[in-house]
Design a protein around this nucleic acid. Structure first.
Lengths: 199, 199, 199, 199
DNA sequence: GATGAATGAGGATTCATTCAT
DNA sequence: GATGAATGAATCCTCATTCAT
């Protein structure tokens, strides 16, 4: 399972009508299984069944199990990047404390939404040959944070951006795994750590 | 694979002679496979072959594949706890800055040693029914840090301990995954974050 | 695949207009796939796509994949029979040496045209329940040759016809498989063998 | 099926004891299925069942279905080469007529033994990436016949050898397919054709 | 008539685990 | 104790065929 040599791009991306519904149903079913059972629990037959379609249909849209996971990862990354872009755009001349708060909030959103899913997808990522692709998205994310920090005159903004992302991920993962419900509190603590790190 | 309903305790832990060597050889073989190929690449047949024993022998020592992984996780946890215990014992009346440095160093050690293995084992942990068991070890670790922090008069030491462990793990994982070699530098940045968090 | 229990007759044979074009397009697409990939490579979906029609349309003309192959075989047989009939008609009082040459030339024609296709179709034939049907065509072919030979006073003309057909097929197949381009030379050697056999 | 990209070499070739029995049982079972049902009828599960072993065992010896067929082809070629080598060695100063008779007999033997199997294997051969390998064996066979012909002063012995092999195969295949039982008679007619070709 | 999304039986292959030797 | 051949359930994936639109 999680064969790193698998094709990871969807076969077709039907963005309308019945097909789109099937496509989304498959992704949602896979997401639920991943949340409940982890990557080992995800089988194509189970995902199809849960989505209410046949295996054949699943394979019409995704060439492999890996492609489904890859697509979920892409969606997660895309949402995070979108959230961060919005947050960055909203900053204007806000003080750095506010900036950190908004960026952290944006970084956390998908974790707060579906913590278990987020955690599983993060863990699965290095097993997939997404590197080039996801690396690019990650780089965009990091660059965006970096530019924002730079705007506030932070030294070595690249490294700092990397570390802030890392510590945020670490704290949110740990909280999620420990069963945290109150992500506002988690966010507050992450902000404290980020501010502390920035000095 | 990674069936959460599997037995996870070694059949016997031979602490001497040829048996002990076989036992260790199997663990080491499994560790190498996990490092190179991830959890999907670990098969009992392959581990046995790499360890230079037959599958039959492997099953004499471990009742299931899960038990091998579980044992590696235990070993990692135990080492970390031992390192932290040593670090805590060495503190005496050292100032808090020194304390943070030593504790972080102890926390990081096994990551610095075998970053890929550490990462895989962390990810595998929630898939195994180790919770009770590892939770206890994690609690010990957290308690130890908590007590140390308390000694320095830190407020809400339990939560702080939890967060420090989490952000350390997050930063080290990210660095390891990004291919970091210089773990002294990583450690320095983690210390900066920890100190910042503590205020 | 190549289920011998399948229907093997076209649903309709539209001999005019758009339908005829579609019908022919499907046959030609299937032929190309068979040439390039062999029988294992032929799928109804692929054939339809290559023909520029939908699978649904394909099934409007052919009740099964087997029916497509069967039709190609029929076409090949029919062409061969037509060629042989022409050749026989042209003989008049030509000496036997000439007769052999013309008959061999007629037998070879479709091999020379599309050697790979001819070979694949020959091989597929025994897998299909064409026996009754093709056997009849083969019998006609053999009878035609037999009658011609009889006209020249050849003894045991039935057996001789059978053997001449067989050795021709064998030599041409082998040459085709070996990548022969110059089918005139192949023809010359077949003629030599045929004349030799006739004594 | 008959995926040309499959591994075609046996995994282990246990030449003794129980393993050898299993290995042979699988080959024999596959051979019987090929005889009865053709290549489409051969499934790994069926072969294993007929051989009285589990699928797992089958895959211990053969990495793919293709490897089983490839091995049967190798065996057939090897037997033919051995038969021809023996025949050639027995010729001494025998006249060419006798030589032709013995070589034809050797060429035919495996067809006479299991005509249906021989036919299926011949047809399957071009579908498998045996080319390099079998081509070598075929070349050996052709070279052997060529040398023998040369010894009798036959002109263009390479081409003649090629053609004799081809016409033999063609005639025997056709006879086998037509349900011939009396391969002595077939052999006599092949000899007639071969002598005729040689002039 | 044409379309192509959907179906699901069928078949290849893997791998944790057992057990006779 | 050790061995490794054997097992077979589990899983991925394909493709001929149908049928609602």
């Amino acid at each position: 399972m999680l064969d790193p040599k698998q094709a990871i791009f969807p076969r077709k991306q039907p963005r309308q009508g019945r097909s789109a519904a099937t496509y989304e149903a498959i992704l949602e079913a896979a997401a639920r299984i991943l949340e409940r059972e982890g990557p080992e629990g995800l089988t194509t037959n189970l995902a199809a069944e849960l989505a209410g379609v046949s295996v054949g249909s699943l394979y019409q849209y995704f060439p492999s199990k890996e492609a489904i996971i890859a697509e979920l990862i892409r969606a997660m990354r895309d949402q995070m990047l979108a959230d961060l872009t919005d947050a960055a755009a909203s900053l204007q001349d806000a003080p750095i404390n506010v900036a950190v708060e908004r960026l952290v909030a944006a970084s956390i959103r998908h974790h707060a939404d579906r913590p278990a899913l987020a955690r599983v997808l993060e863990a699965a990522q290095p097993m997939l040959p997404l590197h080039a692709e996801t690396a690019a998205r990650e780089a965009e994310i990091q660059a965006l944070i970096m530019r924002t920090l730079k705007g506030y005159g932070v030294a070595d903004p690249d490294q700092v951006a990397f570390d802030l992302i890392a510590l945020t991920k670490g704290m949110v993962d740990a909280a999620a795994q420990a069963g945290a419900q109150d992500f506002a509190a988690v966010q507050a603590r992450v902000v404290r750590a980020a501010r502390g790190y920035l000095g």
